[in-house]
Design a protein around this nucleic acid. Sequence first.
DNA 1: GTTTGGTTTAACCAAGTGGTCAAAATTACA
DNA 2: TGTAATTTTGACCACTTGGTTAAACCAAAC
Lengths: 203, 203
Amino acid sequence: MSTENSTGKSILIAARKIFVLKGFDGARMQEIADEAGINKSLLHYYFRSKENLFESIFVEAFSQVQSNMLELLTSERFLLEKIEMFIDQYLDILSANPYLPAFVTHEINRNPEKILALIRGTGLRFDLFNTQIDQEIENGSIWPVNPQHLIINIMALCAFPFVAKPLLDKLIFGNVQQQIDEFTSNRKVEIKNLIIRNLKKQL
Amino acid sequence: MSTENSTGKSILIAARKIFVLKGFDGARMQEIADEAGINKSLLHYYFRSKENLFESIFVEAFSQVQSNMLELLTSERFLLEKIEMFIDQYLDILSANPYLPAFVTHEINRNPEKILALIRGTGLRFDLFNTQIDQEIENGSIWPVNPQHLIINIMALCAFPFVAKPLLDKLIFGNVQQQIDEFTSNRKVEIKNLIIRNLKKQL
DNA sequence: GTTTGGTTTAACCAAGTGGTCAAAATTACA
DNA sequence: TGTAATTTTGACCACTTGGTTAAACCAAAC
């Protein structure tokens, strides 16, 4: 009955695809069953309800997005180094899962209480990060900045192009694939420049 | 039968609320009717189908978001001035309609072809904007920048905090209203500093 | 071979879903 | 005032939804 079964795994893969693509309200249990190549009853045998199945998917998807953020916040590196690593890793993850940001943001808007309860366990510790920034400002190694704006700026610059991708592809790039690819491949450097220039003191 | 009727208006108001809050798939015609204080049949009398009603709402919502972007792109001002004005106006609009960004980005991901067809009419001209940037770079009044990254950076920094608001409120601000308010009231200055510092040549 | 346990299936169900329709209520108009 | 046109309603419908159930399947244990 567990998800270590091959059937269980194929269900999770199918459910992930459908849920992420269509959202909870747009997803149909029948469609997930079809995608997994099984009977709809079998879905309810493995995961008692749609909510149940969805929660499994969402928790996995969200932890994927935030796993390396934890690393960023708690590691023992200099701030500028941390930030560069984070931007690299974060954009790699999002490129591999381009629909995740839109999925997570939509579901969290649709039902904040429930979704936030699901997230509760995965404790992000921002206080450590804030302390480090304060220290480095006192050191004089970076300009004074507000830690909250800083982290939100980084997340925004990384994630927004994925959240709004269909819109940007058309409005900004006129659906020209070459321009889209060029933008994507320059994005890491662009974000790092913007963020780091604003922090670095010398040069 | 038109939407200038008081009934028609109350339907639009109710539909806007429900659609923006729950998305197309999550919205129920019955709920919209209840919200408008009318019979469900009357909904179909005014707007033949759910799709029809949704399209009216979406087009209006989207044009609201982009109306001042047009102004930015075509007006006869210096780039830096334009950008500052845009950030001010854009954040004002989003503050007045905080759920709009998540709504628009979700629907555009859910059904890009249809939604982009709805937008087709409202022609945004980015070529003018690009030309101006190239000119000012040649003038020497700003550093060389990629116009596409620039405009996406601005949109990202403005819109993302709204798209991800429930998440940020909890994870970054610990649901402390005072911190949320402080962040919001500083946001314009923060974004302008970040963008302008990166463009301006003489301090 | 039969029993036992988990797995898979087809048939089915109650509660919605968007949508229709004819009749009633209201308004416009002569 | 009487009548035509418009607006509003309640009853209704076909269809889809998530979910249930009992029977069939199937491998391993005895």
